[in-house]
């Protein structure tokens, strides 16, 4: 009796188990896969394809902080020439005349750029107007750290023209630029250079590599899709001179 029962169940139960295996556990496995996929994609450079860019109706750029992954940002708002660039992860990068003047919520445990003073005298403001009479020196205070009591450093900046260059931008765009180099000296004596490539035709910054204080990360920006307002050739009046 006993052996018979056991015999029966040994045949019956594994076959049932096999059926159950096929249908079982799918949800949990999917969850795990997604968990891993999430962790993996978190470290990849973002790349925007030509097709995607064509569908998008707002300006875009790439940005890379230090050696971290490259992120893509779209221009969300233009607040009186302060450009607010937004990423999918709610990172905000604010630029003015091509200079990064503020960051909010940048990932990777980096110091944030909170404030740059004296922006009205930034040589970039004048240079991007394609004005030929620009003052090439500038002094500013820069606050790094998320908020108020973070450190404030004074910097001096000296611009020099490197020359004309034809630049390859992402998605096979080639553009004629003027390459400007900015020598920054911090009040503690440290010094380094930043580079800006300004479109020969419109004066807008199409590529840059910039860092304002030694406490801040270096950020490299590259234009993906220009802002229409920047494509208008500046009326070479002397707006930049005053």
């Amino acid at each position: 009796m006993t052996t018979k029962t056991m015999h029966h169940s040994r045949l019956f139960l594994p076959s049932l188990a096999a059926v159950v295996l096929l249908s079982g556990c799918m949800n949990r496995v999917e969850s795990m896969k997604e968990t891993l996929a999430f962790a993996w994609s978190g470290n990849q450079d973002v790349t925007v394809t030509q097709e995607r860019l064509d569908e998008i109706n707002y300006p875009m750029m790439y940005a890379r902080f230090n050696q971290q992954r490259r992120i893509a940002l779209g221009l969300g708002f233009d607040d009186n020439d302060q450009y607010k660039w937004l990423s999918g992860d709610q990172e905000v990068v604010v630029t003015r005349h091509g200079r990064v003047i503020q960051t909010q919520g940048v990932s990777g445990n980096l110091n944030e750029l909170a404030w740059v003073s004296n922006l009205s005298n930034d040589p970039l403001k004048c240079l991007t107007q394609l004005n030929s009479q620009c003052s090439l020196t500038w002094q500013a205070q820069v606050q790094s750290g998320v908020a108020q009591e973070a450190s404030i450093q004074a910097i001096t900046s000296q611009f020099s023209r490197i020359g004309s260059e034809t630049l390859e931008l992402p998605i096979n765009r080639s553009i004629n630029t003027v390459h400007w180099r900015e020598q920054i000296t911090q009040d503690n004596g440290t010094t380094w250079t930043n580079d800006y490539w300004l479109s020969t035709e419109t004066g807008r910054v199409v590529k840059s590599s910039q860092q304002l204080t030694d406490a801040l990360p270096r950020v490299v920006t590259e234009e993906l899709k220009p802002y229409k307002k920047d494509l208008q050739k500046p009326s070479n009046s002397n707006r930049g001179a005053n």
């Binding site: 607040d79 009186n80 020439d81 302060q82 003047i101 404030w115 003073s117 922006l119 908020a147 108020q148």
Partner: peptide
Amino acid sequence: LSDLNADDLAQINWSA
């Protein structure tokens, strides 16, 4: 935005 000049605007510490 439409009432305040651009340079004053750039100096505001919004988070404060």
